[in-house]
Each structure stands twice: as structure tokens, then as C-alpha cells.
Amino acid sequence: MTKRILVVEDDEPILDLMDLLIRRLGYEPVLLSNGPDALRYAKNDPPALILLDIMMTPISGWEFLEKLRAEPSLKTLPVIIFSASPSVEEKMASINDPFLGVLHKPVSFVELRTGIEQALKKQD
């Protein structure tokens, strides 16, 4: 069964692109454009990995992450911060989550592949 990757991203063009790229990488993309929906989805049916944008409404990527990790079963679910915001590392350092990675936009196809592979490997 192909692994599902949940993309939480409020930018429509990027969502469209991710659909194509993830498919090409051989995974099944699940595209959601806001935090609450994505949170409900993840709790209900946890994916193999979450690609998470930071600057979103109504809740930010960080709030999403906090709520996600509040769920004991989702503590080790790999999440890749996928953001164009600077100083993401600073915030990440303060959270100190071993199952959290980062990819800075704009990300190339190769970088995306490597990032996803590494994150999934970590969980295994």
C-alpha cells in the first residue's frame, strides 16, 4: 500500500504542485488547506508523513503541531515544516522534536525527495 502524505498548505498553486510532485515520488498525497481540517484528518486516519506550512489561517503551523503532538498516538508521526518563513530553525530548536524536519521554500524536486525519504526512514 502506498504511503499517504498529508500536505497542509493554504497556497493553492503550491497545493496543486505538491499533488503532482508527491505522486511522482510514488506516494499518495492528501491535500488540505487549513489546520483544523488537517488535524481532524490526522487524528482520524494518521498518514505516513505531514508536510506542514507555517503561515496559515485560522491556526498557524506551530499551533497545528502543538495540537497534533498533544495526541499520544501522533507523537512520533514525522512532520516536515515546509515554509517560506525565516527563523524556522530557531523555533524548532526550542521545541526539540526528534520527528520534526524542515524544508525551505522554494524546494527543488531533488530536495523534496531526499527530505521525505529521510523523514520516513527516521520513523522506521
Partner: peptide, 14 residues
Amino acid sequence: AHELRTPLQPIMGY
């Protein structure tokens, strides 16, 4: 920076 980078993503990706 965020606003400038975001549109670059689809361009680069495609």
C-alpha cells in the same frame, strides 16, 4: 521574504 519565496515554489517545482 515569505511572500517572495512562496510564489517561487510552484515555478521551481514545475
